[in-house]
Each structure stands twice: as C-alpha cells, then as structure tokens.
Design a protein around this nucleic acid. Structure first.
Length: 305
RNA sequence: GGUGGGGUUCCCGAGUGGUCAAAGGGAUCAGACUGUAAAUCUGACGGCUCAGCCUUCGGAGGUUCAAAUCCUCCCCCCACCA
C-alpha cells in the first residue's frame, strides 16, 4: 500500500504554510483536499495558495475546475488517486492537505459505492422536499429504510434525500451499504497530521484573515465572478465569503454586517472541522509551529516497514 | 436644578403580582455527518448531590400567603427643559 502524508485541521490555522514547508523538506508534492480551492477564479476567498507558493511546491487538485461545475467526494478520491500515482511514479512524496473532512475520508477509506449520484432523482426529491417538507420525506424513508430513518433527523432534508435516492436507484437501503462499508478498509498508509491551536487564538486569526481578504479585494473578486456570468446560487458561490459578498451585491445586507457575519460563519466552520477531525482515528495532533517534529515523524514513517 | 424614559440571565431584548430560571434573537459550547460537505442537521446554554433544591431581574428596605413585576429611599444611564 502506498504511503502518503495527510495534513488536516480547521480553516485559517496555517495548513498551507505547514504543508509547503514539509513538502520542500521531504521532496513532496501537495494534493489539495479542499472543496472550494478546486475552483478557478476563486482565489482570495478560498485562501488559495498563491503563485509564489505554488512555484515552490507543485500543487495538484487546486485551481482547476470551473466554478459552474459540480464536484463531489467520489470524483475527488478518483482524481486524488491519479495524482498520487503520478507523484509516486516521479519518486516524490504525496502530501494531501486540506480541511474538507469528507474528501479526506473518501480518499483514505473510499466510499460505499462507485456509481455517481443520480441527479434527476435528486432534483425530483428536492422538489418534493420543498413542497412537502422534511418530515414527509422522512416518513417515506422510514418505510423503505427504517435504520437510516432512525439515524437521520426529520429536518435534515439533505440526508433524507440522499438516503431515498440511494434506495430508489439501487434498491438497497443506504444504511445497509453504510454498515457493510464502514470505512473499514484503508486505501493508503497515511501519516495523518492534525493541526490545532487555542480556540481563541484561532478565532482571532480568522477575524484578522477576513479583514485581510477584504483588503485584498474579496468583494471585487466576487463582483468579477458575477460579471463573468457565475450565478450567485451556484454551489461554489454559496460558499463562505462568496455568499456574503453576494448579499452585499444584492443589497440584502450592508458591508459591515456582512463582514461580521462572514467572520462568524468562518469561526463556526472551523469549529465544525474540529468536531469532525477530533473523532477521526489515527491523527497525530500538533501545533503549526511543530514543523521539526513533523519532519521527524514523516522520516520515521517513511523508513518504517 | 426641573420633567419624562430607563436599568432583566454573556449581549440585545420581552416580561407589570403566582402558570418565571424568566419569551425571542444573538454570541458561545457540544454533537451528527459514507458521492452537493465552506454544505446539511441536532442539542445545551444560572448553579447543584438535578422529576428536586439553591442563587438571580441596579442597591437597600417594605407590602403580600406569593414580587422581575406594587410602595419607599438611594445609585447609575438617556432624552428634553433650564
């Protein structure tokens, strides 16, 4: 099984710099694991590694997709697999870096099926959801997949729809697939490094970073995207930062309020990431300053059988 | 100096005698998460030896079986008048 390094942690903690340092020290190349940095033209708001950073270390799966395109964890894992193959062939070390927990999990353990989602079914179910509400669909789910219904809250329309979609298109309850799969089989040997720091310090950093993004022209970036024809309702345009600028553009909110809500939403996101990564198994936790320790750990990891 | 309005749990803010540890919102914390995940969703939120008890609604007294709610005095804030 191939060995890879994975770096995860909440937004704004300094993963980019940490990963670049590590990659340079260890002949590595970086594979992004970020659901928004994949998009082209979205640079400031996603805190994408800039040109000079990308000149130092080769980056994969960053800045390659049109913002109007959908993407998902399955595609991510597939493309990351290819990137890893290429990097290993070139005798370099793959350093997967990012904050999208599901993408990392999908890469490291795979997902329960290899077929893409059925968009038509999804759209239909979404319509029903809007018309009849979550509890209605939840009752349907209860009759075809009671186990899933028990796990999913009646208000979590997103998950109810997914569960129904799986049952409708495959005839197999999602709960059964999930149980069988169980993320039980690693696809790589990963040394996973998790970055953490004092929560208040991280929140301060996030607040400052948002101010910095605004100073760098986040608003103009979003305006440009809109002018290029990217609808504010796109998945990509509904992400943190972009939707907030959209509210200003649409005059739904004044700038000061939008910025403070943007900070708040970023903080909440970081918190959710902590919750996710905290329970992921096998993560070695360290602060972003512990680069020396990280290098030593990686060397150990690479020489071990 | 005078008149009017106001001080409520971390913040904003409702509450005018019991059904009030106190609506609602915000912030925060905790959690869920298997192909939209920067998304979607849930819970907690005065304290405790937790189906009960204790301490809270500017302060001190008082009325009452019972007060955040009524009365008295005091402190502070705001508006207007001088």
């Amino acid at each position: 099984m191939k060995k890879i390094i994975t770096i995860c942690g909440p937004t704004g903690i300094g993963k980019t710099a940490f990963a670049i340092f590590l990659a340079k020290a260890l002949h590595g190349e970086i594979i992004g694991a970020d659901s928004m940095q994949i998009y082209k033209y979205m640079d400031i708001g996603t805190a994408k590694p800039d040109a000079s950073e990308r000149a130092q270390v080769r980056h994969h799966l960053v800045d390659f997709l049109d913002p109007a395109q959908d993407f998902d964890a399955g595609q991510y894992a597939e493309m990351a697999d290819q990137a890893i193959d290429t990097i290993v062939e070139n005798e370099r070390l793959p350093v997967v870096t990012g904050g999208t927990g599901l993408y990392i999990r999908a890469l490291l353990y795979g997902l329960f099926r290899s077929r893409p989602v059925c968009r038509t079914t999804l759209t239909e179910l979404t319509k029903t959801l809007e018309k009849k509400g979550g509890p209605y669909l939840h009752r349907q789910l209860e009759s075809c997949d009671p186990a899933a219904a028990q796990r999913i809250h009646p208000h979590d329309g997103f998950r109810i729809i997914r569960a129904l979609e799986v049952f409708l298109t495959t005839g197999v309850p999602i709960s059964q697939k999930q149980t069988q799969h169980g993320f039980a089989h690693p696809r790589y040997r990963s040394l996973t490094l998790g970055l953490y720091m004092d929560r208040h310090d991280l929140y301060d950093r996030i607040n400052q970073r948002v101010d910095m993004m605004m100073a760098q022209g986040l608003f103009a970036e979003v305006q440009d995207l809109v002018e290029k024809g990217y609808d504010l309702n796109l998945k990509s345009m509904q992400s943190i930062g972009y939707r907030h600028m959209g509210w200003i553009i649409n005059r739904d909110m004044d700038l000061d309020t939008a910025v403070s809500v943007l900070k708040r939403d970023t903080r909440r996101y970081a918190k959710r990431q902590f919750t996710w990564f905290r329970k992921e198994p096998g993560i070695v936790w360290m602060t972003p300053e512990q680069t020396g320790r990280a290098v030593a750990l990686v060397k150990d990891f690479l020489t071990s059988p």
